[in-house]
Design a protein around this nucleic acid. Structure first.
Lengths: 215, 215
DNA sequence: AGCAAATATTGCGTGCACGCAAGTTTGCGT
DNA sequence: ACGCAAACTTGCGTGCACGCAATATTTGCT
């Protein structure tokens, strides 16, 4: 189950997709994210502007794709790779940390934060883990016929999004919120604490699945 | 804390907002959702096309807004209205069911399903419960400094979105999924079962809050 | 090798979102 | 009552997303 579909065609498609997103990233770093028109990206990648939109449905998507590569799909794979006896909550947390702790280019993070539109696109891209993740969770729970797996996957995606948003946010002015100001910690910490809130739900779902199997 | 801000200005703004969304709905029902241009809506509401986009940031938003009115903000209010001794999970479920069980116009549901773009816009609109809900949950948990409330609110929003999507979906062809085909039930049932998956997480958060208060 | 079906690319046309810089209306202090 | 400042509306210009139909490329088959 590696590369479904035919050969040369798919190869070329992947090539242009990569060409597009790399061109997009290069131009964005050079001229600033707001000074890159999709026509520029298309030209730099050697395709027509119309073709750009056959691959990406917004100007920002290509830039974001260059930064996140295929992280989204790898998360689900990483979950599936964990042994079945590991607690679901742990499997998810570890898989996500694993994927979001790659060697990061500092310039790219700054780039993404430079434009609100880009930041939103980046956060939206994280939502792409939802469907693969739902499949992976469904696999573990063997729980077809109940929306549980889908809801949990969506919740995990939401938690990731929240952690990423917090991470990207400027510490903000400490406008007396009545309490102390929490300095937005490291990304792994943020992800951990966001996912922690969901652990009980994950445990419960897993327990239910176990009981269903036993009876 | 009813109508913050000044008087006549806000009144007029609300009036045009309502005029716009009602015009949008009326035209969409008359001509079909894909045959309504934003210029038409603006004209019907007596404002310039540019002004339309000061109120709604997409063509579909006005139509959706006409159908959902202010349901999104009312959900949070409904949660806050429940007595504090009610289980958080129950308060949320009841509040949501209460808001999504209004007398519904059948035509409007059909309308929304008529166009994929419109359906997506409708589901996106449901995400608007997230922020008010986060505030309401935060209130109950008194849990500032932890992303828990935000994560739970986002998860609830996601669950609602999933339930609504399922509800809107055509029963689909029964392509042997190995098991039996589940006929998408009534909206209340769908909402209940989607939210059920999150109950353990809500309970746990509540329990933690209680312990924090006692010590 | 050659051909037909499947699939990708491209140009064109349309409608849309939104920044910007006038012009207009409303609110408020004096 | 007056007038200034803040907030809202409008027109314009630009870039973008995407449906459609024509064209080009790849593939599998014989």
């Amino acid at each position: 189950m590696t590369t479904r579909r035919t050969g040369l065609r798919e190869q070329k498609k992947q090539a242009t997709r990569v060409a597009l997103r790399e061109a997009a990233l290069r131009l964005a770093l050079k001229d600033g994210p707001d000074n890159v028109r999709v026509d520029d990206i298309a030209e730099a990648a050697g395709v027509s502007p119309r073709t750009y939109n056959n691959y990406f449905s917004s100007r920002e998507q290509a830039i974001v794709a260059a930064v996140t590569a295929e992280r989204e799909s790898r998360v689900a794979t990483a979950v599936a790779a964990r042994p079945a006896h590991v607690r679901l909550a742990d499997a998810l947390t570890e898989a996500i940390l694993e994927q979001y702790t790659e060697p990061r280019d500092h310039d790219e993070v700054l780039l993404i934060n430079a434009s609100p539109t880009l930041r939103d696109a980046f956060l939206d891209a994280a939502a792409a883990i939802e469907h693969p993740l739902a499949a992976a969770i469904d696999q573990r729970l063997g729980d077809t016929g109940t929306p549980t797996a889908r809801v949990l996957a969506a919740s995990v995606a939401a938690a990731v999004r929240i952690a990423l948003r917090q991470w990207l946010q400027p510490p903000a002015a400490p406008l007396a919120t009545g309490g102390l100001v929490v300095p937005s910690g490291s990304l792994p910490d943020l992800l951990r604490s966001a996912l922690a809130a969901l652990a009980p739900a994950l445990d419960a779902a897993e327990e239910q699945a176990r009981q269903r199997l036993q009876q």
